[in-house]
Design a protein around this nucleic acid. Structure first.
Length: 205
DNA sequence: GTGAGGATCGTCT
DNA sequence: GACGATCCTCACA
């Protein structure tokens, strides 16, 4: 049941110029699009995490501005891609106006278009589950073919960007808020946002 | 079904 | 020189 994405609206910069926890929640149900070598890969966002910046020990921006985290301090609506554990890439988008650090980590999407390509990039069969395809920050980046070399610092609010986020009116019925995952510092803060029925399937495995 | 451990590299101290 | 916003594989029950 592929929706017609041609009617979907590109999210403008003002959408991202809010606090990360607001943006993280608002991004659920939106559509992440990657124009990759003439093919469109798309997925509906089902899980995000907010990283606040200077007051948040878990955030890369916590220790202050550096070349590594400069995107988080810059204008809202730019991608921040980084390598974790030397193995996986994670995709963020910057929040808050220029000069204020903050970002949202994309943790999972539901694949909509280009599923065969996603499966190939992940080294899986085409009938692989959504969870194994794009259910995790590293998996999501791999399925979309996202790397720091090609996708770091992209403006997702431009119609001619290869990475964009669209709103087709889809909204999650219910959103669960939990503690963030996979971090040690400030791990108790409720800054992870999950589409509720997704959480159920994750719990059930 | 569940848990432990290894891979691997950019960034910071 | 150490560590991390992760994922996969392999034991073991």
């Amino acid at each position: 049941m592929t929706r017609d994405l041609s009617q979907a609206q590109l999210l403008r910069r003002g959408f991202y110029e809010r606090s990360p926890e607001i943006v993280a929640r608002a991004l659920l149900g939106k559509i992440l699009v990657h124009d990759r070598r003439g093919e469109r890969l798309a997925g509906r966002i089902t899980e995000t995490e907010a990283y606040l910046g200077l007051g948040d020990a878990a955030s890369h921006a916590f220790t202050g501005l550096s070349a590594f985290n400069a995107v988080l301090f810059g204008p809202a609506g730019y991608t921040d891609v980084f390598l974790i554990y030397g193995v996986h890439y994670c995709l963020n988008v910057s929040c808050l106006p220029d000069g204020e650090p903050g970002g949202v980590l994309f943790r999972a999407v539901d694949p909509l278009e280009g599923i065969a390509t996603m499966a190939r990039l992940r080294g899986l069969e085409e009938n692989a589950s959504a969870k194994s395809l794009t259910g995790g920050p590293g998996r999501l980046s791999e399925a979309f073919g996202i790397t720091r070399a090609k996708h770091h610092g992209i403006d997702v609010t431009r119609t001619d960007s290869i990475l964009r986020i669209l709103d087709d009116g889809g909204r999650p019925k219910r959103v669960e808020v939990t503690a963030r995952i996979g971090i040690r510092k400030a791990a108790d803060q409720p800054l992870r946002f999950v589409v509720a029925d997704k959480l159920a399937t994750v719990r059930a495995r």
